[in-house]
Design a protein around this nucleic acid. Structure first.
Lengths: 121, 121
DNA sequence: GCTTGTGTGTAGTATTAACTGAACATGAAC
DNA sequence: GTTCATGTTCAGTTAATACTACACACAAGC
């Protein structure tokens, strides 16, 4: 229950922006769409509670039409899908990530690597 | 508490093999080295309890002189270190993993990618 | 001035993961 | 034949995560 105002504030901002156009994005109705209680969402938006679990964050991103990875990163969580990908080839995926870290790869370097992968497949 | 006999059996086999050479690898003493109770280790080895948390699995691997990733994979867990790596560059690392999955990359393909990364850095 | 909808404060609960201590039965060592 | 170390069983605990219901205060609309 440490709280995370950066995440909460971002959700509130996005929700209010949507609400200006679509009144069904009130706190209560948005909470219902996401599948959590209004109480919980209120606490999250004010930074009193930690972000909800990844699944709910992904639902929020879809409803707010933003990229889920951005919100997950703000929440300090990782997409459970990534865990599944790692488990599908644990040794190799672990090596891949460690190689990227050891080389101090930036987002740009990683993009270049992805383009290389696409060429090779 | 679903239990995982494959993991437990592997730990028991490795431990017994070590114990044949080094008698300090009894269940009790090994549990102490790892930092868990003998009760817990017994349940784990017999498959009655789930594997312990990743940190303890990594300690076990070091003591038993096997690769931690092998044991973690058997336990169905991912090294928390990988989570940290992902969080250091969430969008890009997520894209990297998804690209690998979408292309159906095998361990071999991933090794080739790592070699590419080493050349480029 | 009552209803309706807004976000919020109080006071919790449910579930799960990750364990534990103490007592026990069995066999080996002396 | 008692001591000692082995692995196991019983009956729980602790801490964290992820929430919830209900009642409230406030403002807008009729």
């Amino acid at each position: 229950m440490a709280g995370n105002l950066r995440f909460g504030q971002r959700i509130r901002d996005l929700r209010e922006a949507k609400k200006a156009v679509d009144p069904t994005f009130s706190l209560r109705q948005f909470a219902q769409k996401v599948g959590i209680s209004a109480t919980f969402l209120s606490k999250i938006e004010t930074g009193e509670f930690d972000p909800p679990r990844a699944e709910h964050i992904i639902t929020m991103a879809a409803l707010l039409e933003v990229d889920a990875d951005e919100l997950l990163a703000l929440a300090g969580k990782t997409d459970p899908e990534l865990d599944e990908i790692i488990k599908s080839e644990p040794r190799a995926m672990a090596d891949l990530l460690r190689a990227a870290r050891d080389r101090g790869f930036t987002a740009e370097d990683l993009e270049r690597t992805i383009r290389y992968m696409k060429r090779k497949s």
